[in-house]
């Protein structure tokens, strides 16, 4: 299992890049935290996803 944006999911991706590409995210519009540490975009390909990882994928939204 892996927890992405608060939801438990089966771990079906090898790397962070695999996950991001599978979701059709536009890279320039997101930032990712893995276990509360930011993953730089250049490192998505080398970042292996492990059981129990907690990912946060965020973007800007309207706000004041």
């Amino acid at each position: 299992m892996i927890i992405i944006n608060g939801k438990e999911m089966a771990l079906q991706w090898e790397t962070l890049e695999d996950y991001i590409l599978s979701q059709n995210y536009l890279l320039e519009h997101i930032a990712v935290e893995r276990n509360e540490v930011i993953v730089p975009k250049a490192a998505y390909g080398q970042t292996k996803l492990l059981r129990g990882d907690r990912l946060e994928v965020v973007c800007f939204v309207g706000g004041g």
Binding site: N5, N24, L26, H29, V57, V58, V61, G62, G64
Partner: peptide, 11 residues
């Protein structure tokens, strides 16, 4: 100003 929130995939 903008806020930061969990992303959905509809870009």
């Amino acid at each position: 100003t903008v806020a930061v929130r969990r992303a959905n995939t509809k870009d």
